[in-house]
């Protein structure tokens, strides 16, 4: 009789894996890619492809050089690539997109220990670095035909000239902005998919979007436009829900979402930048370890020590 395998229980395993989760995120991001193509044309696909290839390639290369196990098959680098691309204007020079990808994967993810160890969201951090380094190209927006030439956020702020697009156009994504952030419809479809597949919990997006809505309503800043402007929906569903850089408890996720919403509104209304989603997520990323610790569930029956 051959030797039996002896291992510690449990001997059963749920089918969900890191790879299946990341695959679900990619699927959820797909409608926004279709929207980007329809709104901004083929270059949106090119920028996305360049980011994905540079992210996956740099992860592979880094791990190879460092003698670390190869992890590109977990698809997390591909997710980072897509998210970064969605945060860039469609006209971004490709070499800048490559540099952004390197920052995301090498600096923000790998130097902090790889998947699960990074304290900040790689795509968001890379976007902010690019915004500082390439502020010209990063704020040169391409507008779909027949749409006014200022972003809705600058119009809302009273800085840009022109009129707001119709709400219906906003919902479909016919407005200026980063290539993957404009279509509320596509992002909501993707977000719903993530919720149904239980990849994310409702806590972060609801708290984030809800806070922005309530605050802008109170401030009289056209909440219906605020929700669909800038990168709010992309951020709330896809980036403020990143596992490693956000709290791992549901109550923590609520706090995280509220914090993001608060900072976003502060920046949008009073800050120097028109958009605050990226900054708000990055700031809350920094607070994550404390939120996680604060909201850690109390073990059932645990005595005080």
């Amino acid at each position: 009789m051959s030797q039996m395998i002896v291992s510690v229980s449990p001997h059963f395993k749920d089918k969900t894996s890191t790879q299946s989760i990341m695959r679900d995120v990619l699927i959820a991001l797909f409608p926004a890619l279709v929207a980007a193509y329809l709104i901004f044309g083929w270059r949106s696909l090119l920028v996305t492809a360049v980011c994905v290839v540079s992210c996956v390639g740099s992860e592979w290369l880094y791990e190879k050089l460092m003698g670390k196990p190869n992890t590109i098959s977990d698809l997390s680098a591909a997710v980072t690539g897509v998210l970064l691309a969605y945060n860039l204007p469609v006209g971004i020079p490709l070499w800048q997109a490559v540099i952004g990808s390197l920052v995301a994967i090498i600096v923000v993810k790998q130097l902090f220990g790889g998947l699960g160890q990074n304290f900040a969201n790689p795509a968001i951090t890379a976007r902010i670095v690019m915004l500082l380094a390439f502020s010209g190209t990063m704020t040169t927006w391409v507008f779909p035909d027949a749409v006014s030439s200022a972003t809705t956020l600058s119009i809302l702020k009273g800085e840009g000239s022109g009129s707001l697009p119709a709400l219906k156009d906003m919902f479909l994504g016919l407005r200026g902005g980063s290539l993957g952030e404009t279509s509320a419809l596509a992002l909501l479809i993707g977000g719903a998919y993530l919720l149904i597949r239980r990849v994310i919990s409702w806590h972060t997006p609801v708290a984030f979007v809800g806070t922005v809505f309530i605050l802008t309503l109170l401030l009289g800043k056209q909440p219906e436009y605020q929700l669909m402007s800038g990168g709010l929906l992309l951020g709330a569903f896809f980036m403020a829900t990143d596992y490693s850089s956000t709290p791992s408890t549901n109550s923590g996720r609520l706090i995280f979402g509220i914090g993001c919403g608060l900072i976003t509104v502060l920046i949008r209304v009073w800050g120097n930048y028109p958009e605050g989603v990226s900054f708000s997520i990055l700031l809350m990323n920094i607070l994550t370890p404390y939120i996680s610790k604060l909201t850690r569930p109390r073990p059932l029956g645990g005595a005080k020590i």
Binding site: G116, Y243, R296, R298
Partner: peptide
């Protein structure tokens, strides 16, 4: 097929272990 469990990979801090623990422990921590 069932005897071999899939290989370990790095923790992705998803919090599923915390959400699943009946006694509200935090296995990842």
């Amino acid at each position: 097929g069932e005897a071999q469990l899939p290989k370990e990979s790095p923790c992705i801090k998803c919090g599923r272990c915390i959400a699943s623990c009946p006694l509200k422990l935090s296995p990842v921590d």
